[in-house]
């Protein structure tokens, strides 16, 4: 009861919990599409590619205007994605190598910029490196509101274009044949993925972001064979991990929130892989053993 009261009325705790839950919801949904389209690593690459944009935005605006940093992140993530697409289109490098290259080049560049900033803007920049691992404890109401608005926009688009997203994820060629512009719709999905990464920037940071995208999706797939349910379950798992992680880190010892969320999430993934009702490893091996037993009886 006391905890519930604090959750509602304690300013810091409320912001942290809300922020982490919003992130969990939106990353669960968009991450599911990424995983189903076998682009789990794209989220990781785009998140890392966002770092130089954040740094440039800081250098240009000089202030830590939250919006400018987010726009910078989105722009450089987008440039990262275009670069990946161009590499795939024009060279014979495969997608794994293309993602890895862009991820490391952008991230390396971002870390260099971060160092430059820290040397030349000493003191003033305190906390800019929090984009590496996030700092949910420092979330203010204004940031949470921005996160909420971005997430509502992203989720609304998913609801409206659910059938288009589904068909291009399952059978892009068929989708193209019935005049759904597969490339346009795929780019929209990537743009939404980028939005969810921007939402997570303050909370878990660029390094751990991919866990928020891949984890809920991987866990949810174990519990259902329906896309709609998978999205709902992934959103719930993301939300619960966000909330639990936030509570543990704020109320318990002073562990940073992002890593705690990721640990909670990983536990859920592990349990789901073992016991998930649709394809849990434990049930499948029991079934196999039972079949072998029945066959042995004959």
């Amino acid at each position: 009861m006391n905890l519930f009261h604090e959750l509602l009325f304690d300013y810091t705790l409320r912001n942290v919990a809300l922020g982490c839950m919003i992130l969990g919801t939106v990353s669960g949904v968009l991450g599911s599409f990424a995983v189903l389209r076998r682009q789990g690593l794209l989220g990781d690459a785009l998140a890392h590619a966002a770092l130089p944009g954040v740094c440039f935005a800081f250098i240009l605006t000089g202030l830590k205007t939250p919006i400018a940093l987010l726009i910078g992140a989105a722009l450089s993530g987008w440039i990262g994605m275009l670069s990946i697409n161009q590499i795939l289109k024009r060279s014979r490098i495969d997608s794994g190598a293309a993602l890895g290259t862009i991820l490391t080049v952008f991230f390396g560049f971002g870390v260099v910029l971060l160092t430059v900033i820290q040397k030349s803007y000493a003191g003033k920049q305190a906390g800019l490196d929090k984009f590496l691992f996030g700092q949910a404890a420092g979330l203010v109401a204004e940031q949470v509101l921005t996160m909420a608005i971005l997430s509502i926009i992203a989720l609304t688009v998913v609801v409206l274009l659910f059938k288009e997203f589904k068909v291009i994820s399952f059978d892009p060629e068929f989708a193209q044949s019935i005049s759904i512009p597969t490339h346009v719709v795929a780019n929209m999905l990537s743009a939404l993925l980028l939005i969810s990464i921007v939402v997570g920037l303050n909370t878990v940071g660029v390094v751990l972001m991919s866990a928020m995208l891949v984890g809920p999706a991987a866990a949810a797939r174990q519990w259902t064979n329906s896309l709609k349910k998978m999205l709902l379950i992934a959103a719930s798992i993301g939300t619960i991990s966000g909330l639990t992680g936030a509570l543990i880190s704020v109320l318990g010892t002073k562990i940073p929130t992002g890593p705690v969320i990721v640990i909670v999430l990983s536990l859920i993934v592990l349990l789901s892989v073992l016991f998930g009702s649709a394809r849990g490893v434990v049930w499948e091996s029991l079934r196999r053993r039972k079949r072998r037993f029945v066959e042995g009886q004959r």
């Binding site: 399952f170 059978d171 759904i180 064979n225 329906s226 896309l227």
Partner: peptide
């Protein structure tokens, strides 16, 4: 993650 009916429904999209 989808069932047979849902795939056939894609024909109406």
């Amino acid at each position: 993650p989808t069932d047979a009916l849902d795939v056939v429904l894609m024909g109406t999209y």
